[in-house]
Nucleic acid binder design. Structure first.
Lengths: 212, 212
DNA sequence: GCTGAAATACCACAATCGGGTTAGTGCAGA
DNA sequence: TCTGCACTAACCCGATTGTGGTATTTCAGC
């Protein structure tokens, strides 16, 4: 098995150094850097891209959640393990939504840290069972609220879902038994309601924001 | 708080009757029916639509997973709580994918049953912490496996993600600093690999199968 | 009966896309 | 060295989509 390289972002000096020593002192683990804040985040990661990032949520300057988004954009293959003092619902939810791969508490034991790092590196989703339960509940609770209301009419939603199926205007007209030009009119209205100006943008927005 | 109405589908006579008595014997719960199989599933549910369905996975005739799909199609607002003898990964995974709202083991205590029914009725996702952990791990593990491999190259995936952003070929060409015709060539290759023939279909497939 | 929203429909023009085809370059593995 | 593949690029032509109009019908709510 290859060595797992880990970058640490943690403002607390004591914890940061402890983690660094723990990681570097354990065979199979290597610390590529331990930083107190998210300054120069991208250059730092680019110069030594780790397998796993241990990221504190509460940090001065750019906080962990913002950093998470940036990391997920720029380094999509790096696994991010969020660490925090609190098992706060909102934190957990936003971290999961922003693409965190795991979520551990700072009360985790050193062995737990190592295990979680290995777990996330292997594509697992390490988190305590209490956190896991919260995540699922949060997903159920938040999903319905999430879909923004663009005031689409029933007919417009119908057209949109055909569009998502990859159908052309002509096919949609045939399927819905209305004129081709009517489909085009509906699409124009959908575009203006969604503030988009292409079919792909509409489809993307429809799927992502669960409009259909 | 209103009474929670529950339908039971369970082939084991003893368990079925015990659950029925438990539910009817507890204030705030009411059993709309207890059935040994999924025959006449839709008519039965239509004549007395419950809030929650307790559904056994292992059943003669139509099994629980098939029934689950039918129920989710026909009665999307009804909460379905799967019950099973085993915490088998594959069962859990397929149940979650088919839209189960909760997943409990038959070893659950009577109080646990009632709690889970109430939980799922309130929009929660009841499951034991061991099952919860499995679910998350399964999602992580299965997601990459699930996203079918269409052998897209890195460049093709890049083009595709721009497409998903709703960009036009011309804009993609500008962003990636390559010729417009090159973008088109890549798109044609993407289409043939994904077996689609429109931008919307490609975007839809890309998002849904997490190719990007 | 009036009003407004939603659904229906058509026209025209420009822009973009889909499909087919060909071809040069560079790089990694046989 | 040669081969295959990814990436790049171009051309043609017909089909589809984007944009900006206008207009009729239907139906619920005032």
């Amino acid at each position: 098995m290859n060595t797992i390289s880990v970058a640490i972002f943690e403002d607390n000096k004591h914890l940061r150094e402890s983690l660094s020593i723990l990681i570097n002192g354990t065979p199979g683990y290597r610390c590529t850097g331990a930083y107190p804040d998210c300054q120069h985040l991208i250059p730092r990661l680019r110069s030594a891209t780790p397998d796993v990032i241990l990221l504190d949520i509460e940090m001065p300057g750019m906080n962990g959640l913002e950093a998470l988004k940036v990391i997920r954009e720029e380094f999509p293959s790096v696994q991010v393990l969020m660490q925090t003092m609190f098992d706060d619902d909102d934190y957990i939810f936003r971290a999961i939504c922003s693409g965190a791969h795991g979520y551990i508490l700072k009360s985790t034991s050193p062995a737990g840290y190592l295990e979680s790092v290995a777990d996330v590196h292997q594509g697992g989703a390490p988190m305590s069972s209490t956190v896991a339960r919260k995540v699922l509940t949060l997903f159920r609770n938040h999903q319905p609220a999430e879909s923004a209301d663009y005031q689409l009419t029933a007919r417009e939603r119908e057209i949109l879902s055909h569009m998502v199926e990859g159908k052309s205007f002509k096919m949609i007209a045939g399927d819905m038994d209305i004129a081709y030009e009517t489909v085009r009119t509906h699409m124009k209205n959908i575009y203006s309601k969604l503030h988009v100006n292409s079919n792909t943008e509409a489809v993307s927005k429809a799927i992502r924001e669960r409009l259909i």
